[in-house]
Write a protein that binds this DNA or RNA. Structure first.
Lengths: 119, 119
DNA sequence: CGGTATCCGAGATGATACTG
DNA sequence: CAGTATCATCTCGGATACCG
């Protein structure tokens, strides 16, 4: 299973670049993992994550373009808008899980990391 | 196993933020997945990935600070420097694998994605 | 070869105010 | 509530040249 030829290495890079292109930005992964919890409304999401409306709007649009989340206008009074993970969005579960697990296991090392050795 | 409380959701966000902090930038994941293949020398890595010396140097330093890769000076003539994954770096295998797999499976959807609906 | 120094533009992000 | 508009800022990353 050690498929580590130079060629497969190049393919892996391309695959990762593609993934990064879809998940780029500081917020997309945080939005996705939050919506994994349950659907959220716009402002609710903004408060939960701590993101400004401008950025949230932009990120949500990009995620929707990539069909990872859905946007639904609810006929409440006043209207509210609900964002939720799509089936295609759930294909990222493995990615999100891996990132979350790594962060949980290695948080201490990150915090302990020698930020500034000596200027 | 559906551990999806509001609290666990917040913890997941923190974990992901920590991970993103370590892997931030456009190149770190590409460097890591390349070094997963085998150790590389500086210029060799630069050529393989297509990154300028300035960025490569910066990214390698940050990765080394986080103990994900090692830097070894080889006493050749002239000297060469070898970069390799560390044991701690291999703990990212799951993350790298997940990102690679997703990219391979969903490349078509990324390319097909409606970039500009209508300007 | 293995870097570092400098310059610079583009894009990402934040703060704030405003609209329907 | 759900966004958008505007402005200021700041970081990222590329190009280029240079050093030991």
């Amino acid at each position: 299973m050690e498929n580590h030829t130079a060629e497969s290495c190049a393919k892996s890079r391309l695959a990762i670049q593609d993934t990064l292109e879809v998940l780029n930005g500081k917020w997309k992964l945080l939005i996705l993992i939050t919506l994994q919890h349950r659907p959220y409304r716009f402002k609710e999401l903004a408060r939960e994550i701590g993101i400004t409306p401008r950025m949230l709007s932009k990120e949500l649009q990009e995620l929707e373009e990539h069909q990872l989340i859905s946007r639904t206008v609810l006929q409440t009074k006043p209207v509210s808008v609900q964002y939720a993970i799509t089936p295609h969005g759930t294909t990222l579960d493995e990615v999100l899980g891996a990132l979350r697990n790594w962060g949980m296991k290695h948080r201490w090392k990150i915090i302990t990391a020698p930020e500034a050795v000596n200027p």
